[in-house]
C-alpha cells in the first residue's frame, strides 16, 4: 500500500519538477513547485516524519510559496530572453552523465545499521521537540535570530527609500 502511494507521489513530484523548470510563464513554475512540495510532504509522511509533513504543508507550501505567488502577481508579466535551442539537450546530457557517475560511485558505499528500534515515537512531535530543545537548542536559537534578521532585512529593503536612485528621486521631488 505504502509503496503504491510512494510511486504515485514520486511520479507527481517529477512531473511537477519538470513543470518548474520548463514553464515559460513564472506563475506556472510557482504552481508546479507547490505541487512538488505537496508530493514531498506525503513522502515525508511515508518516511515516518509526521511533524515535517505538517510543517512542509503549513510553512513551506502554505507561507513561502504564497509569498512567491504574491511576488509573481506583483511583478506582473515578465519577459524572458530566449535561450539557445540546443541548451536543453546539452543540460540533459550533462545531468545524465552526472547521474550515471553518481550511481556508479555510490554503489560501493556500505550501509550502516539503524541506531534505534522503537518506531512508535520516531518522527513525532514529542520526539522532535525533545531533540530541538535539549541537544539542539543552540542551533534552534540561532535559527530564530536568522529569521529575525531576515524579517528586518525584508522590511528595510521593502521601504524603497534607500539607494542612490531613490535619493535622487526624492531630491527631484523636493525640488
Amino acid at each position: 500500500m505504502a509503496a503504491v502511494i510512494f510511486w504515485v507521489m514520486a511520479v507527481v513530484a517529477v512531473l511537477g519538477g519538470i513543470g518548474v523548470v520548463a514553464s515559460r510563464q513564472p506563475i506556472r513554475s510557482v504552481l508546479s513547485l507547490v505541487v512538488v512540495m505537496l508530493a514531498l510532504a506525503v513522502e515525508f509522511l511515508i518516511l515516518s516524519a509526521q511533524f515535517l509533513f505538517a510543517v512542509q504543508i503549513i510553512v513551506y507550501a502554505g507561507a513561502v510559496m504564497v509569498l512567491f505567488l504574491f511576488v509573481v502577481a506583483l511583478l506582473g508579466p515578465m519577459k524572458e530572453r530566449r535561450q539557445l535551442r540546443f541548451q536543453w539537450g546539452l543540460a540533459l546530457l550533462v545531468a545524465l552523465v552526472f547521474g550515471g557517475f553518481l550511481y556508479s560511485m555510490l554503489g560501493s558505499v556500505p550501509f550502516r545499521a539503524p541506531q534505534r528500534t522503537a518506531l512508535s515515537v520516531f518522527g513525532t512531535v514529542q520526539d522532535i521537540a525533545y531533540g530541538l530543545f535539549t541537544k539542539y537548542l543552540y542551533p534552534f536559537e540561532l535559527t530564530s535570530v536568522l529569521l529575525l534578521v531576515a524579517a528586518i532585512g525584508a522590511i528595510y529593503l521593502s521601504r524603497g527609500g534607500h539607494g542612490i536612485q531613490a535619493r535622487r528621486e526624492e531630491d527631484d521631488r523636493r525640488a
Binding site: 515535517l52 510543517v55 512542509q56 509569498l67 541506531q115 520516531f122 531533540g131 535559527t143
Partner: peptide
C-alpha cells in the same frame, strides 16, 4: 528513517527555516 536517527529530520527542519528566510530576503 533508514538509520532511525532523528538528526536528519531536525536538520531538514533547519533547512526549511533557512530556505524560508532566504526566500524572503531574495524576493
Amino acid at each position: 528513517r533508514q538509520l532511525l536517527n532523528l538528526e536528519g529530520q531536525l536538520f531538514a527542519l533547519m533547512t526549511m527555516t533557512v530556505a524560508a528566510a532566504e526566500a524572503v530576503v531574495g524576493l
